[in-house]
């Protein structure tokens, strides 16, 4: 069952054509990984899904519904959460305020909160601290936790391991595995080790086009293809 489908998506940013032809089918459940070199168009793809850039009409469907032309707010309300590359933490707000902002009604579901604390114990510890005072890894945890403070259908996560220490990346992988039990994750990564341990399905984007799509298992087995598509940077 396809949850999110991109069909020949093209996106221009101002006068620049950034995405030329992006087609992927994200099935419901599990982790779908989008790989690609720096500047390939990964972030632009996620922002186009979120309505933060305008993709070509009719190119994004979510549960059969056309998302193109919808306001970002309405896309979010369909149950799609976004963890941007820069994390989008509100530094002047406390951890709690960052979290409560992401709830629809301004109140926490205690059970959900326990679930979040179990995933990311550090957040409980720094609950009433301003978010700017968190470390990089804690900020990333906050960004992910904020995205799932209420049940979502799909989470778009942009390079969550960037700049994080290996031990923290391991924590993050465990948390993602847990989250993927109940939510579909579309994960953008350059860290192939991290991505291969999580993803069931994957695609590689290069210069605004999908260069390869398939299962992670097949891709991992094909080292020639990896070299060709991801080059030495991986």
């Amino acid at each position: 069952m396809t949850l999110l489908s991109l069909q020949n998506m093209k996106t221009n940013i101002g006068q620049y054509a950034v995405l030329h032809d992006v087609s992927i089918e994200v099935p419901e459940g599990g982790v779908f990984v989008l790989l690609g070199r720096n500047g390939a168009g990964k972030t632009t793809t996620l922002r186009s899904i979120m309505g933060l850039w305008q993709p070509s009409p009719g190119s994004v469907t979510f549960r059969g519904r056309d998302l193109t032309g919808l306001h970002t707010v309405d896309i979010a309300r369909l149950g799609i959460a976004f963890v941007p590359e820069n994390m989008g933490i509100f530094g002047g707000l406390t951890v709690e305020e960052n979290m409560i902002l992401a709830t629809a009604k301004g109140t926490f579901d205690p059970k959900r909160l326990t679930y979040i604390y179990d995933l990311f114990p550090a957040l409980q510890k720094f609950w009433d601290k301003p978010a700017w005072s968190l470390s990089g890894g804690q900020k990333q945890m906050l960004a992910v936790a904020r995205a799932i403070i209420e049940p979502r259908e799909l989470i778009l996560i942009d390079e969550p391991t960037k700049g994080l220490a290996p031990a923290i990346i391991d924590n993050m992988a465990a948390a993602f595995r847990e989250i993927a039990q109940s939510t579909t994750i579309l994960l953008v990564e350059q860290n192939f080790e991290f991505a291969r341990s999580l993803g069931q399905n994957m695609a590689v984007i290069d210069d605004g086009r999908i260069a390869h799509a398939g299962t992670m298992q097949d891709f991992v087995a094909n080292s020639a293809l990896q070299d060709q598509l991801l080059g030495l940077s991986v």
């Binding site: 306001h71 970002t72 707010v73 979010a76 976004f82 989008g88 509100f90 707000l93 305020e97 902002l101």
Partner: peptide
């Protein structure tokens, strides 16, 4: 207040507030 929270967050990062579902 909740409105105040949205305003403070919006001053920092309007796009992110919208991505969280608030106009």
């Amino acid at each position: 207040t909740r409105i105040g929270l949205l305003i403070r967050a919006g001053v920092e990062n309007r796009e992110m507030v919208e991505a969280l579902g608030f106009r």
